[in-house]
Design a protein around this nucleic acid. Sequence first.
DNA 1: TATTGTTATACTCTATAACTATA
DNA 2: TATAGTTATAGAGTATAACAATA
Lengths: 165, 165
Amino acid sequence: MAARAARRSYEELARHLSGIGAVRREMVRGFPQDCPPASAAVLTLLHKYGEMRMGRLSELMAIDMSVTSRHVSHVEERGWLERHPDPQDGRSRLLSLTERGNRQLDTLSEATTEALETFLHDWTEEDLAQLNELLERLRESFGDSRARLPHQGHRTDHRTALKNK
Amino acid sequence: MAARAARRSYEELARHLSGIGAVRREMVRGFPQDCPPASAAVLTLLHKYGEMRMGRLSELMAIDMSVTSRHVSHVEERGWLERHPDPQDGRSRLLSLTERGNRQLDTLSEATTEALETFLHDWTEEDLAQLNELLERLRESFGDSRARLPHQGHRTDHRTALKNK
DNA sequence: TATTGTTATACTCTATAACTATA
DNA sequence: TATAGTTATAGAGTATAACAATA
């Protein structure tokens, strides 16, 4: 990409990344009281990818495992998931959704749909699909967990990210 | 938009909005120690839109003025902006960048460019422009401050947002 | 020794409510 | 009375470091 021409676009993207949090907060406003966004993310990913270990979930959420551990505890306390011992590795634990978790997921899906139908009522299906595509690619470009090798972790700084290309 | 076809797209967008924070954190990693992202946002907006009042900045950042006030204090303490009395309204204060603020902004711009050049090295200018366009529109659709009437504030819930269309 | 996961601690960001000063 | 801004308090999210248990 032409370095000079891109600088303004970079700054614009930086500004959007900074401002997009407000969009997320607005969308999340209709979520149930005892289900903060992080819990919703745990449920969603567990539903999308199925039973998994803590470390895997941590990578998918792109946050430290210590943080993931706390989110998972919150979700478990509400009976939305269970932690089973991993028969293959005694250090590890397998996470799986419960029936109540699936019901909670339905509630969340309705809240999401209702909010987005309201706010995005004048978007075409194509524009939305395009945005999703670009966001997916953006996350991949930033070393989204699914693109990472095992054991590489998420402590990638700019230099190691460069080296790994 | 076709309601049923869109549901999956909505959930995908919700997932991205949840995950995009990791992208932001990664980009911000190269920022100077005493300049957290919120301070960077204050500086950026002040540069982009020029001298303004607290309330205006609060709308642009789409956060409560109480929060804005603290961010501004942090930035002021480092000498990056000044708060002047507003000659038109004794309750109000006008914010403006200082020379040091402009220099800090240069540092931030370099950090941003370096990070995005690294992570987005295989993006075309067109794709980046398209993403920026869609993000801009997304923020507008969610009642981004620039689209709001004065005095309406940012306590818009889904219902009032609907009514205001 | 290295890895998986948990807990303790600290920091950033946000909202609500109570408050001051001015319109 | 209403509005602009500040401060106090509480809650959500994250990272680092120290730790326990297992590989």
